[in-house]
Design a protein around this nucleic acid. Sequence first.
DNA 1: CAGTATCCCCGAGGATACTG
DNA 2: CAGTATCCTCGGGGATACTG
Lengths: 125, 125
Amino acid sequence: MTVSTPSLSELLRLDDGVLPAACPSRVVLDHVTSRWGVLLLVALSDGTLRWGELRRRVEGISEKMLAQTLRVLEADGFVRRDAQPTIPPRVDYSLTDRGREITELLIPLMHWIVQHAEDIVGAGD
Amino acid sequence: MTVSTPSLSELLRLDDGVLPAACPSRVVLDHVTSRWGVLLLVALSDGTLRWGELRRRVEGISEKMLAQTLRVLEADGFVRRDAQPTIPPRVDYSLTDRGREITELLIPLMHWIVQHAEDIVGAGD
DNA sequence: CAGTATCCCCGAGGATACTG
DNA sequence: CAGTATCCTCGGGGATACTG
């Protein structure tokens, strides 16, 4: 049942295991694993959130980085932005299908980290 | 069969969905998703590698960042360092059990990214 | 409310040279 | 070979003020 994890080379079909530096995946990896990228995607996995809600959920993020990271994630097609032309404005952010795909891979990671973080920083740091 | 992904709040047992800023998980998340962290861990998933092999595999990494990132990953208990006291020296790096655990969550992520990267940067960037 | 615009700083990270 | 030491740059990212 447990298919032993295939090697990176097999998974990526690299015959030498080298992932080139100039490579689209590096760009996407950087976007997703950017300082605030993971946190925003994971926050949105709970459902649609407004700008202000996102700010509060992802504690510590500045307005600048919230805007910037959201723009990148939107450009990559991970996040959908719905702006109501009302006064005052209301903007909803949610995951696209693509965003949900990658977030489903991110959640187990976050989960593992949250479970083990204490042991890790407690012992070594 | 498919258990629908539980919400972040459920997974993390946060009643408000807010992941605090001052929190060990943030530190570990930063280490793992650091610029070179993912790439190194994933490279080591293929098995033990020597310093020079790692440098070549993770194309673009400088010696400084290789050393620095490896030290962090070692301190976190993800990576084991085996130094043979020979001349010339030989140092082997491999994943610990803990390293293998988290890498098994990283591989699907990398895999997804490599599969979809072209579409993503091709269309939006 | 949901952003943009600006200024500015610090440290991540690269280049280079050196060493056991 | 497997690093360390040093210098230096560039841009990530915070603080603050302003706007439709």
